[in-house]
Amino acid sequence: MTCAGFFRPGGHSFGVWVVLVAMILFGLLRYENFGGAYNISSFLNYNAMFIVISVGMCFVILTGGIDLSVGSVAAFTSVVAAYLSPYGIQVALPGAVMAGLAIGGLNAVFVVLMRIPPFIATLATMLGAKGGALVISGAQTISIDWELNFTKLGMEKAFNLLPWTIVITAVVVVGLWIVLERTSLGRTVLAIGGGEDASTMMGLNVNRAKIFVYVLSGGCGGMAGVFLASGFGAGQPLEGVGWELSAIASVVVGGTLLTGGMGSVGATVAGALLLGLVFNILNFENGRGVISLSAYWQMVIRGGFLFVVILLQSHLARRSKGATQ
């Protein structure tokens, strides 16, 4: 665990890396432009919001909880960002993230202080945030002036290297990875999922850690809302439906136990990339003109794929366990 990197061979999340590498190789060999700068950049740009909410979700699930509100939070905060965009990115981004943190704080109050089961509590905020987004936007997309610097987030390159969206995502991921692996707070998060009573008995600050994960997940939802608004040039009150399930899928594909206590940030990112890649590859396949799959069929295929990866995951985990014993 000392050098617990993103990649942990033989661990419970080995399968996701194997499949991810295999899919990238498949794509590179089969499609000419798959490895091109444009595809990579637009792929990461589009999937940044899913990666960010998945990582936030990972923390919540590690404590044995769940956050169903993230998709609605992203929709709500994309509208907030759109309204704030005339004041510039320096206002819109923190504003939207703050809105997300606030909803996360509400979740924390429900779950930690009022002891409402997380499934119910976050279901309530999911509906609330969804409604809120529709109310403040009048159920319309709130378009953002393309002239404003806010929409440059996904295009303008930081330090002439990578688009800001990708840089921000990388910073969030690495930061949270350090929090989980190398701080007392992160270890407490893992301990809670492994046994909440035991953690209390050990004198760990269980409530603080639980408040942290819900607020964090809300903040991640807020960040995703910013990416959503800037990427599409509009606040999208109707978006975000089912995102929480994609996020949960990414976390689970990454080998994190739904009951908590075990999992990693790196594998969650891999899980999110993997789910995104399925669409990416199917798009390329469609582009070859041999077959043509509708978006609905793509979803079916993604579902089937998810199932296969999870089977492989548990198979590999069992085998690596057998080898060490």
Partner: peptide, 14 residues
């Protein structure tokens, strides 16, 4: 104790 976590974590946690 938390059986899912490592021996070290269980000793030093907190």
């Amino acid at each position: 104790l938390v059986p899912l976590r490592s021996v070290t974590e269980n000793v030093v946690m907190g």
